[in-house]
Design a protein around this nucleic acid. Structure first.
Lengths: 245, 245
DNA sequence: CGCAAATTTGAACGTAGTCAACAAGTGTGG
DNA sequence: CCACACTTGTTGACTACGTTCAAATTTGCG
């Protein structure tokens, strides 16, 4: 169950009918490659295009006036980018590729037509937006009220869970794919302090690292340290109207 | 243009047809009063009801295991509460009344039917969700990368703008309606430090306070200090399909 | 192999938190 | 109408978590 498109993601929430699947696939006709560190769109850009990530890892961030960066979200295959364009002329955020990626772009009007012709899909898209909203509020609470070590632990767990959502084979060991500076920009810390927190987690035998690989040695303890809730499981969208057969 | 229901809020984004307005009003048949400090629903509650705030001010928060609180969002008339119930059995957050309030509850299935019968309204609801998502990312960036004074300034500006969205008459002077502890729980600070930041803003002649009233004395300077963007203006939802007449 | 990026560590500093005491409101019951 | 309790606001002294700055080391690319 490797996720390679938006239909796969949506298909994990509801059983798609053939026409629904076709309509979702229609969003992904224009394929585009973005090189590592390539920018898909920049803050204030007025392109109203939306994107589905198909392969690779991207991130969503803002730059503040003092030059510091806040990473808002990591984007995995099946995620949508550019949703800010649904309400603002200028994008509220920048989206950049962290690895070589493949994305599919489509006009926002296409989403309007999709929702008109397949209202149930509109509902699922709203549900997906809610999942992301709750994930954001979890991070807001972490930045507002949790100490550095806890935030870093939560990020590690979250990344692992999201990789695992793409590939069940991933267990306690995985390649994080983030620099310590990026971890810092996601958790509101400096790279230096992230380094110290990783070292502490390692000293406490909660994790270990070798080369790029990260091992979660004691996941229950890590979860406790992080105060972490997995928001990608136990989804319930039974309120959606039945499929039109 | 006082907002008293969800149709008013949605009506600011698109021109509603009569059937659309009726369908939105149908969500607000069951009126319910909640006293100040009353809890509408609690974290982990499994009621799958959604609510529209009609009168008063509510807040959305989580309690962390150390007893600290993070306020996620303030809810004004026209806002929706309980959207976490669209994807999770147990609510991810608590919603409490900060003043005496009037809300309207409806089953989440009703939202599914609304989106099925009025796809364009589904699109607007998604757009509203995006506005809230971006407002959340702004706060995430503030908590992650901005100093205390800036976060407090941003909160003051944001509250004023949201009050003004309800009532155009509100200018540089308004009643904030928050304790310093609540400001702290929203901005990730302690009440003590909020007090010092307010004093500093006052000493710098950016604001002044008397009794419950707050005056924004130098709004441009305050905006600069806060690095604040108003996300409730310049909305563009022209991608929505045309109304079905 | 050579260079730039990323990681690691130490030391000094500063923003925000903690603890404590007091003042000013606010509301309630006697 | 006042007394008392409780919440909220205010200020000071001290603490601590995380930042800053700097330098050395490792890693991984081209």
């Amino acid at each position: 169950m490797t996720i390679g498109c938006f239909a796969d993601r949506v298909g994990e929430l509801i059983r798609l009918t053939a026409p629904e699947r076709a309509a979702l696939s229609a969003l992904e006709e224009r394929e585009r490659h973005v090189r590592r560190n390539g920018v898909l769109f920049r803050e204030k850009d007025t392109t109203s295009e939306l994107f589905i990530i198909r392969r690779g890892l991207m991130m969503n961030y803002v730059l503040l006036d003092d030059g510091s960066r806040q990473i808002l979200r990591f984007l995995f295959p099946g995620d949508m980018a550019g949703t800010g364009g649904l309400v603002y002329r200028g994008s509220p955020e920048t989206t950049m590729a962290m690895t070589d990626t493949v994305v599919c772009g489509f006009e926002r009007e296409a989403l309007g037509r999709l929702m008109r012709d397949h209202p149930r899909l509109g509902g699922v898209i709203l549900a997906v937006a809610q999942i992301e909203r709750v994930a954001l509020t979890d991070r807001l609470a972490a930045l507002g009220r949790r100490p550095a070590k806890s935030r870093v632990a939560a990020l590690l767990l979250d990344m692992r869970n999201r990789y695992r959502a793409l590939d069940n084979a991933i267990g306690a060991t995985f390649v994080l794919g983030l620099t310590q500076e990026e971890i810092g920009d996601a958790t509101g810390l400096t790279a230096v302090h992230v380094n110290r927190m990783l070292r502490q987690l390692e000293d406490e035998r909660l994790i270990s690292r070798d080369h790029g690989r990260l091992h979660l040695l004691n996941e229950p303890a890590l979860r406790r340290a992080a105060n972490y809730t997995d928001r990608y499981e136990n989804i319930d969208v039974s309120w959606l109207p039945a499929a039109v057969e």
